[in-house]
Each structure stands twice: as structure tokens, then as C-alpha cells.
């Protein structure tokens, strides 16, 4: 049977990807060293758990989805995906491999679990997808990945409670897949920020979100999406990708490693690795 080895959640602010591409992680001018310094431990953990497949939980940035069709939840079910021009020039083309058998199993299981998720036979990742991958695999290692996208663009948005339950349903879906596969969740986004505007970093709220997500995630469900915006800015909603990745894990988790660093451009930057607690 397939099993979940754990969840990695991280910010995906564009400057992170650009810094990796230019190999400027230690550049004091950028001030991002404390964030990047946390990642060798993450990569070590990833090597230990050795995932066969990654479920990549992210929010599209008005690239793959326009407002012409805006599902609440979507899953990529194609054998391959590409990266995307986000409006500021086409990046060097990349192709990402998937595992369509597992993806369609997940889609089927979610629908049976009353999550009517949209299936995508084509999906182009923006930095929301690629940044986290590059933090974990700077060498662009090929690892099959299944994208799960949640709407953080335009209300009405799925509630935090619903999003936590989506994570639980994803966990159930993977647990019922007959093939022996080690599956890792990778959630990307957050933490507090509003695009292009300084002053929305809320360190206290970010700390609360990280701590509560690990230890008492159901408490996050008492928020509305607007509560999260009121505290963490409009794009603070991206934290909900973390909630999905947490929902897929058991009630008790251990935090393997984490970091909080601000500012990463105009965002509160965070990373957290969680795995099922030793019983």
C-alpha cells in the first residue's frame, strides 16, 4: 500500500527562486541566508524518507487558471506538466513527470469522499509550484509529482475547515492506493503578505499559524478565509496549502525542522517539516 512519509511546507516568494538560480543564497545584501541555511536539514530529511512521489499543494497565481474557469480545488492528472510564463517572460522550459495512475486514483477517491475536485489534463506551474521543488532539489532531480491546486485568487474561497478536510481525504486516498509507494506532501505558499505591498507581515500571526498547525490543526478551522486575510494579508491565504499538507498527516506529528525569517521581500517566510509522531 502507498503511505505518506511526511509533509514539507514552505514559502514560495519569487525572490527565493531567483536567488537559487543566481546562487546568491549566502549574499548578505539579500539577507536571506537564515532562510536558506535551514534547507540542508530539509534535504537530508527528504533523502532519508526517500519519497517516490510528491503531492504538490499550491495556489495558482492567475496563470494556469483565469477567472473564465476557477475551480475551488483542482488536481493535475496528466503524465507531464510544464512551467509557465507568468506575464514577465517565458522561463527556460521545464517538464515535470507525474504518476497519472496515482493521480486518477486520488481524483476518484476524492469524488467518492464528496470532494468534487476538477481534473486537469494540462497544467502549467508558476513559481508557486517550482520554487518549493527547487528548494528541495536544486539539481532539478526528476521525481514524479501530482499537483493539487486550491483557489486563493477570488472569493468565494473554500473554507479553512474544508481545506483541512481535503487534506484528510487526500491522506485517505493515498492510504487506499494498492501500490507500494512512499508519498511526500509539499505545500507551498505564505506566510503573511499582500502582493507588492509592504507592511502586511504579521510575525505574531505567522508564529501562531505554524505552532497551531503542528499541534492543534483543527483550531485553524475556526477561521474564515477573511479572518486569515484580516490577519495575514490577502496572500496570507496561501497558508491554506500548508493546512492541506497537515490534514493528510495523523493527529499527532513531530516537527522535524522549521524556520521563520522575515522579510523575504514583502512576505513573512516560513518552512516546516512534519512527520507522523513516533507511537
Amino acid at each position: 500500500m502507498a503511505r505518506i512519509v511526511g509533509s514539507v511546507a514552505t514559502s514560495h516568494t519569487p525572490i527565493i527562486g531567483k536567488t537559487i538560480a543566481k546562487k546568491r543564497e549566502n549574499d548578505p545584501e539579500l539577507g536571506l541566508k537564515p532562510f536558506f541555511d535551514a534547507f540542508p536539514r530539509v534535504r537530508e530529511w527528504v533523502a532519508e524518507v526517500d519519497p517516490d512521489v510528491v503531492v504538490l499543494v499550491y495556489n495558482d497565481h492567475g496563470v494556469n487558471f483565469s477567472l473564465e474557469n476557477r475551480p475551488a480545488f483542482a488536481i493535475g492528472t496528466a503524465p507531464t506538466f510544464t512551467n509557465a510564463d507568468e506575464g514577465n517572460g517565458a522561463p527556460p522550459p521545464r517538464t515535470f513527470q507525474s504518476d497519472p495512475h496515482l493521480a486518477w486514483h486520488i481524483a476518484q477517491s476524492l469524488i467518492e469522499d464528496e470532494f468534487d475536485i476538477a481534473t486537469c489534463q494540462e497544467m502549467a506551474f508558476d513559481h508557486g509550484g517550482t520554487t518549493a521543488l527547487d528548494l528541495l532539489w536544486p539539481d532539478h532531480k526528476v521525481i514524479p509529482l501530482i499537483p493539487v491546486e486550491i483557489n486563493a485568487v477570488q472569493p468565494p474561497l473554500p473554507t479553512p475547515r474544508r481545506i483541512f478536510k481535503l487534506g484528510q481525504a487526500l491522506g485517505k486516498a493515498i492510504g487506499s492506493y494498492p501500490k507500494d509507494l512512499k508519498v511526500m506532501f509539499l505545500a507551498t505558499g505564505g506566510l503573511s503578505h499582500t502582493i507588492g505591498i509592504g507592511g502586511y507581515i504579521n510575525e505574531e500571526f505567522d508564529a501562531y499559524c505554524m505552532e497551531t498547525l503542528a499541534n492543534n490543526p483543527i483550531e485553524i478551522a475556526r477561521f474564515t478565509s477573511d479572518d486569515i486575510v484580516a490577519n495575514g494579508g490577502e496572500q496570507g491565504l496561501e497558508f491554506l496549502t500548508w493546512v492541506v499538507a497537515r490534514g493528510a498527516l495523523p493527529d499527532k506529528v513531530d516537527v522535524v525542522t522549521s524556520v521563520y525569517h522575515k522579510p523575504i521581500s514583502h512576505t513573512g517566510g516560513g518552512m516546516m517539516v512534519m512527520e507522523a509522531a513516533e507511537r
Partner: peptide, 21 residues
């Protein structure tokens, strides 16, 4: 205008910065 689409208009009108964040 939604923020996620604002960045793309800003870019094409010479405002610079990332097209999204």
C-alpha cells in the same frame, strides 16, 4: 482588478517587479 492579474498589467506597462508573488 484582482491582485494576481494586476502584476501582469504592471509588468507590461513598465512597472517592473514580479508578475505575481
Amino acid at each position: 482588478l484582482n491582485m494576481y492579474f494586476y502584476g501582469k498589467i504592471r509588468f507590461v506597462t513598465g512597472g517592473g517587479g514580479p508578475a505575481s508573488a
